[in-house]
Amino acid sequence: MKLLKYKGLFLFASLVILASCGKDKQLMFSELTSVYVEAYVDSTEYTFATSPITVVNDTIDIPLRIIGTAATTDREVTFVPKGGATAKEGYHYKIGKTVIKANEFSATVPVYVYRKPGLKDSVVRVVLELKKNADFNLGFSDRLDYKITISDILSKPTLWDAVWSAYFGTYSVVKFRFLLQVTGRTNWNSYPFPADTRFMSQRAKNALLEYNQAHGDMIDEFGQVVVFP
């Protein structure tokens, strides 16, 4: 009877021990990879008016990043215009290759913008949005689209008050046109490096001095004398 008990116990213990030999399922990330727009700002207001007339197209780079693992093959991202856009795809703009390359975690999508006659008196807009597809889920809900405004109209840069006014004072179209001419800078909607602002402010002051000596005070559209602080 005792022997039977021992045998039973032994058999049970053996079964328990053998059960531990089963392969444990590892806790691994197995979700579908997500994608989101990585840009710090969610929009670009692009104007050709700050570029020489010879510039007929340009590129806006939009950075994308994934949440998840890199793949061994290239994966297509669906990045398409939202409905209601006034900018016409293939005419005002064209979206470049939207691919996360193999073994990569990010990509830059080029959006080519074109200088068209109608942009002289109108502003066109498009919002590009990420869509779910077989390879990608959607990432952070507030970083799934990117707005682009295209024009050929000289407008006050969005960063003027935050950045440029410290160097150049109050905005006026006359002043801005003069700055475009003498500094050579075309992108006024990105933060400048300190060395650039040093030179730009010096160049602007010297150029205005030369202008005033040759033509008298420069007057802006508000009837004010153009000055740099």
Partner: peptide, 13 residues
Amino acid sequence: GFPGIKKWGDVAL
């Protein structure tokens, strides 16, 4: 230490 190419600027006033 800040980024960007640093060159000599325009004539000082």
